[in-house]
Amino acid sequence: MSTVTPARPETAAGRRAPAAPGRWRRAGVLAAGAALAVAAVGLQTTGLDREARTAHLTWTGGVGDQVSASRFSARVKAVHVAKAVESAGLDGKVEQATTSGVFVIAEVEATANREPQKFGTPALLTGDGRRYAATDKVDASHTITNPFIQVGWWVGSVAVFEVPAAALPGSRLVLAPRNGFIGEALLPEVEIDLGFDEATAGRLISNAKDVYQLASKK
């Protein structure tokens, strides 16, 4: 037929069929593929999990230090331990909050770097690895989460935690800006070591005030 051409003899030797992969080459390719798959799975384990990816960026310091994060600065002026907290309600009545543990009251000051912002709920990281959110027995309008943190001046307020007495040693106070509806990853936060060792904590607890009076709003 038409595909049979006289040129066939000349072109015959110039055409070399591709060599079929040998057994060892197939094995090598398979081993390489398996190694790549194992490497991919292994790499996944080194990646950050969701919690770590969206975690805050932490600046640390101690009591009395000014800890400057990227968007704000904060410092803890003093820490008190009390068995009850008294604050004025909206109607002027005094409300008292009691606990089976202790209240830790941290006097906090903060200022912003560029834009006004508010703090989210403060947290207390204790020495045994637990995380306590600020208590809701005290109205949030009395605490550091209420005022706007603005540029140019320091805003002072308190953060109140209700914790078991045994959890005090080694605890740190964590402050971060309030996150929006669409959560922002890598927010700045400050972690301030309250300086409680066993002796200090025991002394503070034994000397704890019966009632701590929260200053009313200015």
Binding site: M1, T3, V4, R8, P9, E10, A12, A13, G14
Partner: peptide, 27 residues
């Protein structure tokens, strides 16, 4: 299909060793 119908024994001539060796280098 086409060549099979028309292939004749003479077409197998280039497969001899002499012609293969004399062919141009394989690209």
């Amino acid at each position: 299909t086409g060549t099979a119908a028309e292939a004749v024994p003479g077409d197998r001539a280039p497969a001899t060793p002499g012609e293969a060796a004399a062919a141009a280098p394989v690209p």
